[in-house]
């Protein structure tokens, strides 16, 4: 008697990257066009998230309609700038460099006790000042580059990395961004290097977070879908990893929302008065 074994049924993170890329390109094009834009600004850090965002934008809009910005600070790793150049060369996008050192140091000089962490946040916010000014200059909309993992962990500078109005990667875990990067032929050295915010010397994401992305992403996917801890542990993750991931998510919900507003009426915005962000009445 022939024995036919069924395939295991479980949650999968793997995506069809051709379909995903095609959908995200369409998203970029349509969200920009719906707002009256044909061009985008992308701050390119040399990391994989901004490389993938740049690649999608170039495919969606044409490389000539994408303004890539390299925004180094004197303490940034030279490798970051070199990788930013590598990415823009690969996708045929012109790269403009704006050194944010004078902006950041102008403030830091008045703040002698500033810590590396605080200064890193100032760098991230200084970068957004430049991005939004370049947006105005070129009539090009800023694209966000934050992925789902870092958004869920709150691992970003609030009102900085999360501020661009259109973000193609925000629903992709880091693991999926890596997969998409390979499909889009982002240079290997960028896909395979250790992810870093490069806001402090020697910093890496996974050391900051205390968990590997590929493990965190599986835990996150199951946690978000409501699987109990024991189920996730049964997949081969430690109770400590599960607890760490859950704690990071649950300490940072505020970073994924607009500010809390005291409600005194029955027309409070986004509480009672609900309209989607693309809602527009005809003139």
């Amino acid at each position: 008697m022939k024995i036919v074994r069924g395939t295991p049924n479980h949650e999968v993170l793997d995506l069809d990257y051709r379909l995903t890329a095609s959908a995200l390109e369409r998203f970029v094009r349509e969200e920009l066009n719906g707002r009256g834009y044909e061009k985008a600004v992308v701050a390119v850090s040399g990391g994989v998230d901004s490389a993938v965002t740049l690649a999608l934008a170039a495919r969606a809009l044409g490389p000539e309609n994408v303004h890539a910005l390299s925004l180094p600070h004197r303490d940034s790793s030279p490798e970051s700038s070199a990788h930013a150049r590598l990415v823009t060369d690969r996708f045929g996008v012109a790269l403009e460099t704006v050194d944010i050192t004078p902006m950041v140091e102008g403030y830091a000089e008045q703040t002698p006790d500033i810590t590396p962490r605080r200064k890193g946040n100032v760098m991230a916010r200084a970068r957004m000042i430049v991005v939004f000014d370049k947006s105005e200059q070129y009539h090009a909309l800023p694209l966000g580059t934050g992925n789902k993992t870092e958004r869920l962990f709150g691992y970003f500078t609030w009102h900085a990395d999360d501020s661009p109005p259109v973000n193609p990667l925000g629903d992709l875990y880091k693991t999926q961004v890596w997969g998409l990067a390979e499909y889009l032929e982002v240079p290997d050295e960028i896909v395979h290097k250790a992810p870093t915010a490069d806001l402090e010397p020697g910093q890496t994401d996974e050391a900051d977070l205390g968990v590997r992305y590929r493990r965190a992403d599986v835990i996150l996917e199951h946690y978000l879908k409501g699987y109990p801890d024991e189920y996730i542990v049964g997949l081969g993750y430690t109770p400590e990893e599960v607890a760490l991931v859950k704690r990071r998510v649950n300490q940072t919900h505020y970073k994924r929302h607009l500010p809390a507003v005291a409600i005194v009426s029955s027309t409070a915005i986004n509480e009672f008065y609900l309209r989607p962000l693309d809602f527009r009445l005809e003139d």
């Binding site: 995506l15 069809d16 051709r18 959908a23």
Partner: peptide, 10 residues
């Protein structure tokens, strides 16, 4: 709304 991007077709 498209969801489920694991295969060639949503």
């Amino acid at each position: 709304p498209a969801r489920g991007f694991h295969d060639r077709t949503p």
